[in-house]
C-alpha cells in the first residue's frame, strides 16, 4: 500500500518533467530532423534526401552566416566574462554582507523589462536622432547627427548587455563558495596579486566560468531580437536565416535543416570548450 503511494507520487512528480522533455524538446526535434531530410521534387511531392544540407554547403552565404554568428557569439561570451568576472568578484568577495543582496538585485532588475523594450531603449540612445547623437551635436563635437545603430559593435554591445547576467550569477555562486582564507593563503605563501588570481581564484572559479560561458554562448547564438533590432538588415545573424526560410520563403524543409545545423554547431563549440578547459557538464552547468 505505502509503496504504491510512494510510486504514484514519484510518477506524479516526474511527469511534468517527462512531458516537457518528450513533448516540447524531443518530439519537435525529431520532427525537425525528419522535416529537414525531405526534398521537394515537385509541388506537394517530397523525397527522402540530404538536399537541404547540400544546399547549405553549396551556398557560401549560409555557412558564412553561421560561422559569423558563431565567432561573434564567442566574442560576446569573452566580453561578458571579462566584464562579468570583476562584477561577480566584487559582489561575492569584496562587497559587505548587506550590500551584496542589493547589488545582486540591481543586476536582476533589467530582466524585469522585456527584451523588446530593452532593445528599443538602446535604439532610443543610439539612433541618428537619439540621445547620444543629439548630445554630441549640442556639445559641438559634430555638426550632423551620427547613426550608431546597424553595425557589429552595436550588436555586440547589445548582446553583452542582454546576456551578462547569466555570466554573473554562476560566477557569484562559485566565488561565494571560496573562503577568504584560500586567497590569504595564496598571498601568505608568497604569491602576488597576479599569481593569486591566475593560480588560485581562476582555477577555483573554473566550473562557474565554464557554466556561465556555455549559457551565454547558447543564448547569444540563438538570440534573434537583439541582432535584428540593433543590427538591422546588416546583422546577418543565423537565426535570421532560419526565420527567413520558415516565414518569408515558406521553405520549412530548409529552415528545419538550418535549425538543426545551428544546434549541432553550437553543441560542437560547447563540447570543444569543455574539452579544452578540462571540465564536464556535470561539474559546471549541472552544479550551478
Amino acid at each position: 500500500m505505502s509503496s504504491d503511494v510512494k510510486r504514484l507520487s514519484l510518477i506524479l512528480l516526474f511527469s511534468p518533467f517527462a512531458l516537457w522533455i518528450v513533448l516540447l524538446i524531443l518530439l519537435p526535434h525529431i520532427g525537425m530532423v525528419a522535416l529537414s531530410l525531405r526534398e521537394k521534387v515537385a509541388p506537394r511531392v517530397y523525397e527522402f534526401g540530404f538536399g537541404n544540407y547540400i544546399d547549405f554547403i553549396n551556398e557560401p552565404i549560409y555557412w558564412n552566416t553561421l560561422l559569423r554568428t558563431g565567432s561573434m557569439s564567442l566574442l560576446v561570451t569573452a566580453l561578458a566574462l571579462l566584464i562579468g568576472f570583476p562584477v561577480a568578484y566584487y559582489i561575492a568577495k569584496i562587497a559587505g554582507k548587506r550590500s551584496r543582496g542589493a547589488l545582486f538585485l540591481m543586476c536582476l532588475i533589467p530582466l524585469w523589462v522585456s527584451d523588446l523594450i530593452r532593445a528599443f531603449g538602446w535604439i532610443l540612445l543610439l539612433r541618428e536622432t537619439g540621445v547620444i547623437s543629439s548630445f554630441l551635436i549640442w556639445t559641438g563635437m559634430t555638426d550632423h547627427g551620427i547613426e550608431f545603430l546597424y553595425n557589429d559593435v552595436t550588436v555586440i554591445i547589445g548582446l553583452v548587455y542582454t546576456v551578462i547576467l547569466f555570466m554573473i550569477v554562476p560566477l557569484v555562486s562559485t566565488l561565494d563558495g571560496m573562503g577568504d582564507d584560500m586567497i590569504e593563503a595564496g598571498y601568505n605563501l608568497g604569491g602576488n596579486s597576479l599569481t593569486v588570481l591566475r593560480r588560485i581564484i581562476i582555477p577555483y572559479a573554473m566550473p562557474g566560468i565554464v557554466a556561465g560561458c556555455i549559457v551565454v554562448f547558447m543564448l547569444t547564438a540563438g538570440s534573434y531580437l537583439t541582432p535584428i533590432l540593433l543590427g538591422g538588415k546588416n546583422s546577418s545573424w543565423f537565426t535570421e536565416q532560419i526565420y527567413d526560410q520558415f516565414i518569408t520563403r515558406f521553405n520549412w524543409e530548409s529552415g528545419a535543416a538550418f535549425g538543426f545545423l545551428l544546434l549541432a554547431f553550437t553543441s560542437f563549440v560547447v563540447w570543444l570548450g569543455l574539452r579544452l578547459s578540462g571540465q564536464s557538464l556535470t561539474n559546471t552547468v549541472a552544479r550551478t
Binding site: D181, M182, E184, Y187, N188, G190
Partner: peptide
C-alpha cells in the same frame, strides 16, 4: 606586504587548494 614576509600560516580550516 604579507607575501614578502617570511612568516607562514596554517589556517584554521587549513585552506589547502582543492583544485
Amino acid at each position: 606586504p604579507p607575501n614578502k614576509r617570511n612568516v607562514k600560516m596554517v589556517f584554521q580550516h587549513l585552506a589547502l587548494f582543492p583544485m
